[in-house]
Write a protein that binds this DNA or RNA. Structure first.
Lengths: 196, 196
DNA sequence: CCGTCTATTTATAATTC
DNA sequence: TGAATTATAAATAGACG
């Protein structure tokens, strides 16, 4: 649309490219949302701008939820994959530990970049009608909260399971975790509202 | 567009809803692809139709690739989350370890459910049209393969980084992982084909 | 049920303020 | 420089075969 057609080809001018990205990103989200609402479909969308900024949309609480749908539903591995899968799941204790930590490293980075992205993210919206306006910040913040809640829950479970009665944790460390979890649970009761 | 406006509200008639979904799904993918190409952006899109059919688009090889980007980059917390975040990130060594493992537990479950879902999933496919059958299995199997590859890569990196020269791993365990990785790399060269 | 056709709505490129 | 306007390209709802 617009005065001229657009070619399906990379925009070389970095300024124009950024402008194009900003506009289109929002309208794709809008369209995705329409699809999710009109059809009651689950939709997850992730967009990484050339300069690293990330935008996500999800008809569910979080994009992670959509991802889990994939992992749990889709999945049609072929015979070759079965072997691979076995090797992964059958690994022994030490390797298991290393693997877990390795995968978790990613989450670690995630946490660190959080702070950095905050102000930027909160500034993002605008294109939507007033009512819908806060949606993405609320939604995404809440999605993240959900993620942390799950993590906290699992931490506590693991503490019990892995560490048992041992004095592996310092008392105050445990207390901190417990209080955070409580606080989060309490906070989770409101501010949702992106059900479609 | 079209003869009438559309309300942002669920389409009750199931037939109309399905038709709407089919059309819109494709155009969202088209738009996403435009964004990816014109701006050289990474885009991942997942759509679950009301009746369970899954459609994915990705500017990268697989949607899982996009997911991994998320794990490393995304996240849009709000001020309330900052406190929570601090508590998490400031925990000490022991707690850190526990946390990492805890978060990774999710991935663990993921893998377990994989096996469980496997036969079920393979059985489900038979219901689909012959032609479409191959497409999704090939595409999705490959996507899954990609996901595992990334995981393996991270595992190995972490091994080097975290364990250094220590004999934390058993020799045969390491060998198993290495061989799997190689095999997978070799297999990854073909059978793709969902480029836009 | 799927491709076409056409009137209309949307999206948006260019331009202006 | 970024928001608002305008002219035009695109998308698409409904109808038809």
């Amino acid at each position: 649309m617009g005065r001229n057609k657009v070619e399906l080809k990379k925009i070389e001018d970095s300024i124009s490219r950024q402008q194009f990205y900003s506009k289109r990103k929002d309208s794709i989200i809008k369209k995705s949302n329409e699809l999710a609402v009109l059809c009651e479909a689950d939709v997850g969308l992730l967009m990484f701008s050339p300069d690293g900024e990330v935008t996500s949309y999800s008809s569910k609480e979080s994009v992670e939820d959509i991802m889990l749908l994939v992992v749990n539903q889709r999945l049609i591995p072929n015979p070759n994959e079965q072997h691979l899968m076995q090797s992964l799941t059958q690994s022994k204790n030490e390797g298991e530990m290393v693997k877990k930590i390795a995968i978790a490293e990613a989450h670690e980075k995630k946490l660190n970049k959080l702070k950095q992205t905050l102000s930027e993210a909160q500034q993002k919206i605008r294109y939507y009608e007033p009512q819908v306006e806060n949606i993405s910040s609320v939604q995404e913040a809440d999605a993240y909260k959900q993620f942390l809640m799950s993590a906290m829950e699992q931490i506590q479970q693991s503490k019990a399971k892995l560490l048992g009665g041992q004095e592996f944790l310092q008392r105050n460390e445990y207390a901190a975790v417990a209080s955070v979890n409580t606080e989060d649970t309490a906070a989770a009761g409101n501010s949702r509202g992106w059900k479609f």
